[in-house]
Every structure is written in structure tokens, then in C-alpha cells.
């Protein structure tokens, strides 16, 4: 693995249904080891509006120079809608839907070495490439 080359490590936030995000992160850590700068928000018990506010609070709790990548499961679900609706001001916040394990492994593996604009397309391609039907 290349030495760290990005000035500010992006923070990953999983905004997902029920315990999906917690378990995805737990699985990532089982493969890559413990991860700092990683957070989980479940939609359990939240209205759409309250979930948007919780996302905003989470983002604003991250140091301002750090980019944030919000991962959600269903684009057309409460998490996807609340994520798109969240207002994060001038912060660098990127939003990725359809989260899966290959995508997350790519993110956590390369977030210290690849610039965000290079990393994000890889998340999409890895996430899609991880789906096969036979």
C-alpha cells in the first residue's frame, strides 16, 4: 500500500436502515482492522426530517478541513432521501448510494492514499463489479 498521500483523510458515515451500517462497519473491521473516522447512523426511530438533522450534526462534528463521504443503502429510502436533504453548507460532503461491502473495503483501504475525486469513481466501479449473477 502506498504511503499516506492525501492531506485530510475523508471520514466515512454510513446512513442505513436498521443495523445494516453497524454490521457493515463491523465486517469491514473484521477484514481490514479497526477503523477510526468512521461513523454509523441508523434510521431507527427517526422521522425523515430528524434523520436529516442527525446527519447534519454528524457532519458538523467532523473537523471542517476533513471531507465526509455519506454512504446510504436505498437511494429511494428514508436514508437516501434524508442524506440528499441534509444541508451541510460549504463542507466537502459526497453522497454515495447503494452501499455494499466491496465499495466500503475500497473506501477504507484507499482513503489515505487516493484523492477523493479519484477514489469516488472507484467506489462506484467496485460496488458494481461486486455484483455478479450466474
Amino acid at each position: 500500500m502506498n504511503p499516506a498521500s492525501v492531506p485530510h483523510r475523508p471520514v466515512g458515515v454510513l446512513v442505513t436502515h436498521a443495523a445494516l451500517g453497524k454490521e457493515l462497519l463491523r465486517t469491514v473491521e473484521g477484514i481490514l482492522g479497526a477503523q477510526a473516522d468512521a461513523y454509523v447512523l441508523s434510521n431507527d426511530g427517526y422521522s425523515g426530517e430528524a434523520l436529516s438533522r442527525a446527519i447534519e450534526e454528524r457532519v458538523h462534528g467532523v473537523p471542517v478541513e476533513r471531507p465526509v463521504v455519506l454512504f446510504t443503502d436505498l437511494a429511494a429510502g428514508s436514508c437516501g432521501i434524508a442524506t440528499r436533504r441534509a444541508e451541510c453548507g460549504a463542507r466537502v460532503v459526497r453522497k454515495v448510494t447503494g452501499v455494499n461491502l466491496p465499495m466500503l473495503l475500497e473506501f477504507f483501504h484507499y482513503r489515505d492514499t487516493l484523492p477523493l475525486e479519484e477514489l469516488l469513481p472507484r467506489l462506484e466501479s467496485k460496488g458494481k463489479a461486486g455484483i455478479t449473477v450466474s
Binding site: 425523515g48 426530517e49 436505498l74 429511494a76 429510502g77 432521501i81
Partner: peptide, 11 residues
């Protein structure tokens, strides 16, 4: 439903 259109409604 205060979430309006979401997973439970769609799926």
C-alpha cells in the same frame, strides 16, 4: 407516514 416515500412504502 412522516417519512412519506421510503423503503416500507416502496418495497
Amino acid at each position: 407516514d412522516d417519512r412519506l416515500i421510503h423503503g416500507q412504502v416502496v418495497h
